[in-house]
Nucleic acid binder design. Sequence first.
RNA 1: GCGCCCGUAGCUCAGCAGGAUAGAGCAGCGGACUUCUAAUCCGCAGGUCGGAGGUUCGAAUCCUCCCGGGCGCGCCA
Length: 554
Amino acid sequence: MIATILNRQLDQLFQDAASEGLLPSPLPSYKLTRPDNPEHGDWAINVALVAAKSVGRPPRDLASDLAERISNLDGIARVDVAGPGFLNLFLEPTFAGRVFCDHFLPWLDNGAAIQPERRQRIHIEYVSANPTGPLHVGHGRGAAVGDSLARLLRRAGHDVTREYYVNDAGRQMQMLGNSLWIRLRQQHGEDVELPEDAYQGAYLIDIAAQMLGTLEDPAAFFAQPEAAQLEQCREYAEQAILSGIREDLALFRVEYDQWFSERQLHHSGAVDAAIERLRDAGATREEDGALWFDADRYGDEKPRVLVRDNGEPTYFAADVAYHLNKLERGFDQMIDLWGADHHGYEPRVRAALRACGIGDEQLEVHFIQFVTLVRSGEKVQMSTRSGKFDTLADVIAETGTDAARFFYLLRRPESHLEFDLDLARRQANENPVFYVQYAHARVCSLDRKAQEAGLTLSTFAAEHLSEPADRDLLQVLLEWPDRLRRAADQRAPHQIVFYLQDIAAAFHGYYNKQRIVDATPTEVAAARLALARAVRSVIADGLDLIGVHAPETM
RNA sequence: GCGCCCGUAGCUCAGCAGGAUAGAGCAGCGGACUUCUAAUCCGCAGGUCGGAGGUUCGAAUCCUCCCGGGCGCGCCA
């Protein structure tokens, strides 16, 4: 917020300077940054360095001409020309406090809204795991990132729809039905082996037992033609697994506006229509009995099959239809979150959209790297094939939703994540979740103390928040709107977690340095309490964005 | 072989629309509780930013090559 206010003034000043010929026109893009060396002031501007060449003057000369003008701006105590030509700004001690009182508090009171540069209708799709087994720890990461990103985009002022694409068509589902059928027959006393390519997971044994219990007349069931038995098994397995997935996600506070069925897409004729659209675009051809999309003409490395030689459309064909469907529903931005193992799939989807004349920028694909679980200091080996893996439900049961969601966002999505279960479970200071939550609880505690003491917020002014400790905390606090906007623009919910750790650290430091409720005079106490409450409000806001609770006591 | 991601402190990782002396947490060491919650704070130590070139006034950040790790290259989904 300080940066925004300074930038507004600086832009005007530099425009004026440009029209006088002191700076080039148009103005080159310059940066207002926080130097890491305090001797370099509160803020630094590199405008003289980037403009020097086109004006034909040494950067330091140019800087000193600008320094005088800048020093007259509101809130600026002093301007130094330093190094190769940086302009170092020193703020008046009361400036941050003034921004807090005049801008930040009113902003908070009015709902703390963020205005996007351009409000978009965004469709975001995440997890979309095949309903062939329970969600595992890898899906958990996609769930945490996707749900948090959706919250973040909504918070940043966009119109967001969250969707789970249910892959309920195709051979995997046949295989699932078949696997359940075998399990069912086994439990019915038949001596049959589970084929090697079947789903081996123990969860199907439970589902088989369940299903057997619902059959009024098992003998009659097994007397039906095989196809009918298989169809009922597929149906039962899908429903059972999908409802398990829904439960896990609900427990993980991961929400959706819509569950979108792939089978529905086929039935509605949308897949055929998509294939027709590609054909009309002249982007397809028939070969070896199959229908191919010439993806290589649109940026992919080779042609891709749309319709198999047996007449069945591929998963890819359905996916093209799905993306076209999203656009038909009026979204102007699609965000897909995929597991990193699907990155090779992106070019063909893009190619198809291009062939349909759809702009590349309408689809964003973000990849979520893998998760390695660490338990008792050792990496836990996973294998989906054999059905030996840790489920998301296991992790939630072990650590709780708060810790798990926080941990999943502790790294950038494109980095491999080592998820240390022992650390996440530990109720101690090494655990970063508690660090942030504790800061929130601390302010709540202060608030209770203030109420006991009858402290009111009525009378305080910016001057009461001008000590170095105040300014340090204000600096981080006032960054919130910018950091929030930046995290949304970059589709990076993990940056919210980083900010939360920054603001919590700043507050804990402040707490240890300054008396708050019992500070004297009362005006100072009131000012500090207002500051602490603003910190609480921001922490609660940030935690809510990542789906983590903000406790009032700990 | 080709493509994508990653390589930064002992460990796990930020920083990468170029900016001045590269940061955090954990682990290690030393301090701070008769005081609003010590699940906290303060200090110390810790680095050829995988390597080599290049662009630039300036490179962890951009470009090229190389090395290491992961993943992908199905008429599977």
